[in-house]
Structure formats: structure tokens, C-alpha cells
Design a protein around this nucleic acid. Structure first.
Length: 331
RNA sequence: CCGCUCUUAGCUCAGCCUGGCAGAGCAGCCGACUGUAGAUCGGCUUGCCCCCCGUUCAAAUCGGGGAGAGCGGACCA
């Protein structure tokens, strides 16, 4: 796999393709970053962008993980003390998940976001941004039902972080795209370049296949889950024998979350996937890539129940090291 | 600073006028049927009715005070 393919594997969009191609020409030493609001427990949404960071490290990038304590504070996620305590635990879980400790720089937002120069640049961006634009950028991210002024500042700081962390490629889930587009539009107003961005897909709701999996409501998978939790959650997941399900009765588009997790979480981390299957149903199956597994599910060769069993096993393997970290931390 | 509206189950809301066991839809959970899930059937759960005080035999409902949210207006030498 060449550098460009490795960088863009499983991305739902890059902005812009030309800019990423330029980066891919000499990826060594290029810098990428993702920012996370510290939440204490790493869940499958974090894991998706983390997998992308691992791709980038393998392509030669230096990776920075921003533990965005100030952002979490501005987004009404708790007191500063609470947030900073969870940040440290989150860092350990990222390493347990597979980020290379040597190649990954963890930065706390509060380490540089209170600097005088940063603050002045922030005010300059505020002057160049309308309330409605900032609010729109936050529509997929904000917590609570009331828009706070702090939440209008939030996306502008995210734009500035890209400058201050000297980032060549900004990574985020698709829910971050409006923030990144705001950054591209507004950073030139203070004499900075528009950042290059890469967005990862969002996994559909595990139970229904409709909309986006959410950690706040509905079912998610996290490093807190036991093997039994994972088996139970995967087993009750929506999984028709196709990658392209019909819309539901209300006309909502549906995805197959089981296949999505194979595609975005399992195959990027495992060379081959073995589906254990009773002799009665034809014995074990082995896959080297997502496409052949999806094709077998589509044809009926692979039954969803067997696919789920395999998915639970591999997910458990991905979660196990982080689970162990949590276990140690709570003793 | 003034005025108006809203607050009831996880969600959207009805009930309030005219006081009398706390409701519906959706969601969720459990079974049946499918070698998964979903769909379909059958069953079940869910509450600080925003808070405090008062009236009353009895308050989600009436009165007073307060909080939160939404909207409008005024002030602007």
C-alpha cells in the first residue's frame, strides 16, 4: 500500500485531495493531530480516529493527540479539575489501544491556550466570525440544549490549535467537518494557511443502523466493557445479511453497523479474520480483507450470527489492553 | 430594566380552565417466531408533574414567591 492509500484508507473525505497528495509525497516528519475532549473512558468513536492515527504513524507522520481540557470545559463537560483528571487516564488508554508511545505527543490544551499571543489571535478570529457561523460549526458537537457563548469560542480555538501545534493534517470524525471548514475559511483572515483535513466515518447506531452511534444515548462499545458486555452488545446489534439495508419505515437510511465495525476497526488492525463456525454450518471461514467478508455476508455464505461471533472476539481483543489499564487504575 | 410564553416518563407532548388513584405515542425491557439483529405478534416497566410556601378533606391542576429556558420591548446622555 503506498503512502497516499495508507493515509486515506477508510476516510470518508479529505480536504483537499490535492493537498493530501502533496503531503503523501514526503510523509516523513509531517505532523497530524486529533483533539479529544477528555471523557475518562475511551469508546469506539475515539478508537476510529485512533486507528487512523496508527495508519499515519505507519506512513511516517508525527502524531499529536490534543487532550482538549479547555474545550471540554467550554463545552460544559464539568469543572476544570474533573476534566484534567480524566485526561491522564485517557492518555494511558490510547497507548494501550496501540498508539506508539515514542511517536505520539500528548498535549494538554491548557498548556498553550492561555498564552497571551494565542489569546490575541483568538480575539482576532472572533472579530472575523459571525455568531451564526460559529453556532452552525458546533451543531454536531455542542452539549446541552442552550447555546453558550463559550461554545462559540470553541471552534475558533480548534482552528488556532492547528496553527499553534504546527499541524500539516487535521484529523477528526465527520462531526468535525463544519469546524474544520470554518477553520479553512477563517484562518486566512489572520494570515494563516487553510488547514488540510481528513475526516473519518461515523459508525451507525448499533441497535438500529439509523443515524450515528452515540455514547450519550443508546449503545456504544468502550474500554469499560467486559467480554460478556461486548458479546451481548454485538449480538443484539442490527445486522441484516447485506451491506446496504433498506430504509426503515420512516424512510431513514440504514447502515449495517456490524459490517462497518469490521471495515473500520477490525480489518485495519488484523491481517486475517477467522470466523469460527460449527461443522454443521460448514466449518471455519477465513478472510484477508473486508470486501470478501462483506461479499460472503451478501451472498448468504456467511451467516450474520457467525459474523457477530467473530466480531465480538476481535473487538474484545482490541479493547482488552485498555480494559486492563482501567482495572489497574481503579485498584 | 419591563412584558409575554413554556417546564409532566428516556423523547415528543396531552391533562390544568371546572381540584378527586399520573396519561398517550414513540423509545426501552421480556417472551414467541426466524440459526443474528430487524420486521411481526403477545406481554411488561418507567415519574421529585422544576423548587418552596400557602388554600383545601383532597393540589400536576387554585394563590404567592423563586429557578431554568424561549421570545418581544425599552434604555442607549
Amino acid at each position: 500500500m503506498d503512502a497516499y492509500d495508507r493515509i486515506t484508507r477508510n476516510a470518508s473525505e479529505v480536504v483537499t485531495e490535492d493537498e493530501v497528495r502533496t503531503l503523501a509525497e514526503s510523509p516523513d516528519g509531517k505532523r497530524a493531530y486529533v483533539g479529544y475532549e477528555p471523557s475518562g473512558v475511551l469508546h469506539i468513536g475515539h478508537m476510529l480516529t485512533a486507528t487512523k492515527l496508527i495508519d499515519l504513524q505507519e506512513a511516517g507522520f508525527e502524531v499529536t493527540v490534543l487532550l482538549a481540557d479547555v474545550h471540554a470545559y467550554l463545552n460544559d463537560k464539568g469543572t476544570f479539575e474533573e476534566i484534567r483528571q480524566t485526561a491522564e487516564r485517557m492518555k494511558e488508554q490510547f497507548i494501550a489501544y496501540g498508539l506508539d508511545e515514542e511517536q505520539t505527543e500528548f498535549v494538554l490544551g491548557s498548556e498553550f491556550q492561555f498564552d497571551r499571543e494565542y489569546t490575541l489571535d483568538l480575539h482576532a478570529l472572533e472579530l472575523n466570525t459571525s455568531m451564526s457561523r460559529a453556532e452552525r460549526a458546533m451543531s454536531e458537537i455542542k452539549s446541552g440544549e442552550t447555546v453558550k457563548v463559550s461554545q462559540a469560542v470553541y471552534p475558533l480555538m480548534q482552528a488556532l490549535d492547528i496553527v499553534y501545534l504546527d499541524v500539516d493534517l487535521a484529523i477528526g470524525g465527520m462531526e468535525q467537518r463544519k469546524v474544520h471548514m470554518l477553520a479553512r475559511d477563517t484562518l486566512p483572515s489572520i494570515g494563516e494557511d487553510s488547514p488540510t483535513c481528513l475526516h473519518t466515518p461515523l459508525i451507525a447506531d448499533l441497535g438500529s443502523g439509523v443515524g450515528k452511534m452515540s455514547s450519550s444515548k443508546g449503545v456504544t462499545i468502550s474500554m469499560e466493557d467486559s467480554t460478556e458486555d461486548i458479546e451481548q452488545k454485538v449480538n443484539s446489534a442490527y445486522c441484516p445479511p447485506t451491506a446496504d439495508p433498506e430504509p426503515d419505515d420512516e424512510g431513514n437510511d440504514r447502515e449495517n453497523p456490524v459490517l462497518q465495525i469490521f471495515e473500520y476497526h477490525v480489518f485495519p488492525r488484523f491481517e486475517t479474520v477467522v470466523v469460527e463456525r460449527p461443522e454443521k454450518y460448514g466449518g471455519n471461514l477465513e478472510y484477508d480483507d473486508y470486501e470478501s467478508l462483506a461479499a460472503d455476508l451478501e451472498s448468504g455464505e456467511l451467516h450474520p450470527a457467525d459474523a457477530k461471533g467473530a466480531l465480538a472476539n476481535y473487538l474484545d481483543e482490541l479493547v482488552a489492553p485498555g480494559r486492563e489499564k482501567i482495572r489497574q487504575a481503579t485498584q
